[in-house]
């Protein structure tokens, strides 16, 4: 475990806690895409199938449980909590994510490390995570401006991906047989998706105006 990876896990955890805090404190989920949250819950559930079969470390096991629990808690809140669900703007959250799920699954069947259930679902979760943010970015563009909490949420998510890429570069140079092509390529695609958001976020910060994403 290197510092980049640990920092990446922490920023990832912070991004999820920011969201939970926002929903819990304001009893509102305005501006948050339920579809993105459902995709993230699916990412964790399909990636951590080895939760009970492979014990890597206490840290890994605890973090996996925290990620699964927190992502399901967010989805449950946005679907079931009487107060929160009222503020969910479903007519804005219209990204057809089922096609994305299907495309990722087909890709995982074709491109995986080993044609076994666990490896196919692992590859599926890697591809799905790269595009899971799309409904949220579409929702941000639809709703015009991004309130600071959702913006910070995407910012921390981007930091998590960026740190993971540095972690892979570090491991590539320090470990002789480290290769993670599937995760690396998919991680690069995912970070690229965030880059345009960061560009607008930086512009709004620099020109000190409310962040307006080009509709």
């Amino acid at each position: 475990m290197n510092i980049f990876r640990f920092a990446g896990d922490m920023t990832h955890l912070i991004s999820i806690l920011i969201l939970l805090l926002k929903i819990y404190a304001t009893k509102s989920c305005a501006g948050i895409s339920l579809k993105t949250q459902e995709l993230y819950a699916l990412v964790f559930l399909t990636r951590y199938l080895d939760l009970f079969t492979d014990y890597v470390s206490l840290y890994n096991t605890v973090m996996k449980i925290v990620f699964i629990a927190s992502s399901l808690a967010i989805v449950w809140c946005m679907r079931r909590h009487p107060l929160v669900r009222r503020s969910y703007d479903k007519d804005l959250d219209t990204f057809r994510h089922q096609y994305v799920v299907l495309a990722c699954f087909v890709l995982a069947l074709l491109l995986n490390e080993k044609f076994t259930i666990q490896e196919v679902f692992w590859a599926f979760s890697i591809y799905l995570e790269a595009v899971a943010i799309l409904p949220q970015l579409v929702l941000l563009q639809r709703s015009g401006n991004v309130d600071n909490l959702t913006g910070q949420y995407v910012l921390f998510l981007g930091a998590y991906r960026g740190l993971y890429i540095i972690n892979w570069i570090y491991r590539y140079f320090t470990e002789d047989h480290f290769t993670r092509w599937i995760a690396c390529v998919s991680g690069l695609v995912q970070t690229g998706l965030y880059a345009d958001f960061f560009y607008y976020y930086y512009l709004s910060w620099k020109t000190n105006t409310k962040l307006k994403l080009p509709a």
């Binding site: 896990d9 080895d50 079969t53 492979d54 890994n60 080993k114 490896e119």
Partner: peptide
């Protein structure tokens, strides 16, 4: 199960 590359990252 060494034949499968154990995923040590999250």
């Amino acid at each position: 199960s060494k034949n499968r590359s154990v995923k040590d990252e999250l």
